[in-house]
């Protein structure tokens, strides 16, 4: 890619792994051990994002947690983004990892299609993923296969739809009424 670093260029620079001058430790480790688990690496705003294929996310998380030079033992956050009904792939699931010993962060990202919004749960890796995944299922409608207790958590159990999807109307499907 050309090096026309324009001042005020506001799109994040997308770099393929080979071209990063000094890859951050998680990228370097993953690249060394399992290069096929990396779809894309994005460096932007001082943060590193690794896009991981859906079928490898649990293995990648386990590797990140157990690798002695990474030690991502703390799942800080898990959330999903809806890019919009017309986009393909429609959903992004973001795993924000943190290490309480090395004090570094990385974001793993999985892309999911609208007709097949399934991803394997990571509750086996970090138990804190339990409620995060329930929330993501409740509000975004992403199914976490193998989750021990995948129920709605914030919305009532009999509610319809998933509110954080872009095609869900702001005020809900039905007019609000107290009766």
């Amino acid at each position: 890619m050309s090096n026309e670093a324009q001042p005020g260029a506001d799109m994040p620079v997308e770099i393929v792994p080979e071209q990063v001058a000094t890859p951050s430790p998680p990228v370097a480790a993953l690249q060394c051990e399992h290069p096929d688990w990396i779809v894309q690496v994005i460096h932007a705003f001082g943060e590193t994002t690794i896009v991981v294929p859906r079928e490898h996310i649990v293995a990648a998380c386990t590797f990140m947690k157990n690798s002695p030079e990474l030690e991502f033992n703390f799942l800080a956050d898990l959330s999903a983004v809806d890019r919009g009904p017309e986009e393909e792939p429609r959903f992004e699931v973001n795993y924000h990892l943190f290490s309480t010993t090395k004090l570094h962060r990385v974001r793993l990202k999985v892309l999911l299609h609208d007709d097949d919004a399934h991803v394997t749960t990571v509750t086996g890796v970090w138990r804190t993923a339990n409620w995060h995944e329930r929330e993501t299922y409740d509000l975004m409608g992403i199914i976490f296969d193998g989750h021990p207790d995948l129920r709605r958590i914030l919305m009532p159990e009999d509610s319809e739809g998933h509110p954080l999807r872009k095609d869900f109307p702001l005020r809900g499907y039905e007019p609000y009424s107290l009766t």
Binding site: D10, M11, P12, E47, A76, N94, R105
Partner: peptide, 8 residues
């Protein structure tokens, strides 16, 4: 600008 950040 387009992009994503996580600030803790």
């Amino acid at each position: 600008p387009a992009g994503e950040v996580y600030q803790a």
